[in-house]
Each structure stands twice: as C-alpha cells, then as structure tokens.
C-alpha cells in the first residue's frame, strides 16, 4: 500500500541533512510553505542552500532561518520584499550570505532540467547582460544564447491545496507557481496541504502534480 501521509509537521520535515539544497515553492507569500519552514527552523539543519523566487520579508519563517544563520546560499530571482528584509540585506552586505541571482524563467527551467535529468540548455534570456558573465554564450540562428545548468534539489518544500494518500496534488489559483516544477525536482518532496482527500476523489484530468513526484504530505487545514 502506498501512503505518503504523515501524522504531523515534525514528521514531515524530519531527516533534512546539514548542507542540503532546499527548493521552496511560492511567489511572494503566495504558495510559500511557511509552516514547513517553521518546522525546518525547529528541526535544526544548517548550511542550507535555498532555491526560491523571493527571499522572504517582514518576520516570516525565511527571514527567521536567515537570522538564525542557517542559510549559506540563496538562489533566487528577486530578494526584495515590500515588507523589507533587513536581515537579508545585512547578511548580504557583510558577505555572510552567498546570492546567486537567476532570471525567473531561467530559474524555473533550471529546476525543470534538474527534474528531467537534463544537463543544461541554451536560452536567450540574460544573453549580453551582466547575469551572463562567466557563462558560455553561443550564437544559434543569429542570436546569442547562454548555457544554463540544472538545479537539483535534495529537498523540495511545497504548498498545495489538496492531496490524496498517493501524493497527487491540486493547487489554488496563483499559489501553483513553482510548486509543480519543484515537486518534480526534489529527491525528497514534502508537501503541506489544506486537506487530504480520499484516493479517487481528485479527478485524474485535474491533478496538477502526479503523486510519483511526492514523498510526504501533511494536512494542516490551512
């Protein structure tokens, strides 16, 4: 029997090793698994490399992980928040935090490549700009492209709306964002959902993330 449900959030987050690369779904606050991140703070893993679109803001759980010195490197497209993120800004200015800035679509595609076992791809995005410096640039069909390498996650932390015990997922509105691509890329994919439903209750036509990509689901009611 396949049953990916775990009893509580501590069980969901257990076993994440120091030095892990952790993919975190979300665009701003929307679709970000803040409860799993809170549990990661308690769990204690250190020297983490996190891959996400933004880098937290205000006093959210990402900022708390940064403030606790648990993050070694951030790979993201936009480490700014309307709520401000003075912790990130300070760590970055002091050279205590490595930042790899990646265009948003390139970030999604590098994660997709990682999930698909693809060693790299050429994209026109960022060609001829500062973000292409140090990367191979090559012309195809008269147009400059940049070689981008995959991102592979040791762990993916994802928020979805509903799951079944096989780990099939559906999302809500713009909270889908990076969830599907990151879920497929994590060697260990952990998902927090509002509701776990009976096997068969999700219409196969409507499932967005097939359960094969998911390892653990925890129901949080939110």
């Amino acid at each position: 029997m396949i049953d990916k449900r775990v009893a509580d959030i501590e069980a969901a987050i257990s076993g994440i090793a120091d030095g892990s690369t952790v993919l975190i779904s979300g665009f701003g606050d929307v679709g970000t698994p803040f409860e799993l991140l809170g549990a990661l703070l308690e769990q204690g893993a250190r020297e983490l490399e996190i891959v996400l679109n933004n880098a937290g803001g205000g006093d959210d759980a990402i900022v708390k992980l940064l403030a606790a010195g648990r993050i070694r490197k951030v790979v993201c497209s936009f480490p700014r928040s309307s709520l401000g993120n003075p912790v990130f800004d300070r760590l970055y200015a002091e050279g205590k935090l490595e930042l790899e800035l990646v265009p948003q679509g390139t970030l999604a595609e590098r994660i997709r490549a990682g999930s698909a076992g693809i060693a790299g791809f050429y994209t026109p995005t960022s060609a001829g700009t500062r973000l292409a410096e140090g990367k191979e640039q090559r012309e195809f069909d008269g147009r400059l492209h940049v070689l981008e390498r995959p991102i592979v996650g040791d762990v993916a932390l994802v928020k979805a709306l509903k799951a079944d015990r096989w780990g099939n997922l559906v999302y809500h509105r713009a909270a889908r964002n990076f969830g599907p691509v990151m879920a497929a890329c994590g060697r260990l994919t952990i998902v927090q959902v509002k509701e776990i439903v009976e096997l068969g209750a999700l219409d196969p036509e409507q499932v967005v993330t097939p359960g094969i990509f998911v390892d653990r689901v925890v129901e949080l009611g939110l």
Binding site: F27, G28, D29, V30, G31, N53, S82, Q104, G105, L107, A108, E109, I111, R112, Y171, H172, R173, A174, A175, R176, N177, F178, G179, P180, V181, V208
Partner: peptide, 27 residues
C-alpha cells in the same frame, strides 16, 4: 482572494476564459 495576485503582488481577478499555469509553463 489573497492567493490570486499579479506580478506586482497586488490582488487581481480572473476573467471568463482565464487559465492558470505553473511557472514552467508561464515562462
């Protein structure tokens, strides 16, 4: 709907005929 925002993270609506994609497809 707090989970329905635009690129500037402001709340928006969807019109009839709208669709939702993951970041992979959107980009």
């Amino acid at each position: 709907d707090p989970q329905l925002i635009n690129a500037g993270k402001q709340p928006v609506t969807l019109l009839p005929g709208a669709s939702i994609s993951s970041h992979s497809d959107s980009f």
